[in-house]
Amino acid sequence: MTCLRKIGWLVLALTLFGSSVSVAQSGTTQYKCMIQMTNYMGEKAYIAVSLMDGQGAYEKTLYVLGSDKKWYKDVKAWYRALGKKTPNISAISGASVAGGDRSVIVLEIDNAKLNKDYKLRFESAVEDKEDHAKDIEIPLTTAGLSARSEGTGFIRYVRFSPN
């Protein structure tokens, strides 16, 4: 056991202090995330997945389901948090998702933020329906990323699995 831990530390040390490329890569982990929607009626939902700090302040956008920028302002809290500094999200956006459907996305999460009082927030909005600023909030912990989390709005649940 201790032997294993030592090897682990060694590997970690090697990756951290090795070549610069591997440092950048080893800093994040990809998680497969499945979002299952409720059977609501209406247009497809736009969902923003954001990283929030312990105080509940917006830190970073991890993924956006919905590709037409015209509707981004409907995802109100997230859009407000973005402010003027709209990041280039075309690389981390995909199709919006309809009631009853599911969507599987890949989230890239900074290892340094794991188990450090950060949260993943899923905000969902549907045209001409309400906006759920905190449809789901999941603590960014190892436990949080392995359980199934129930939603409160258009999302029925979210599941993770390491990629």
Partner: peptide, 8 residues
Amino acid sequence: GSDANGKN
């Protein structure tokens, strides 16, 4: 899905 590098 995700490609060999785990990207969307």
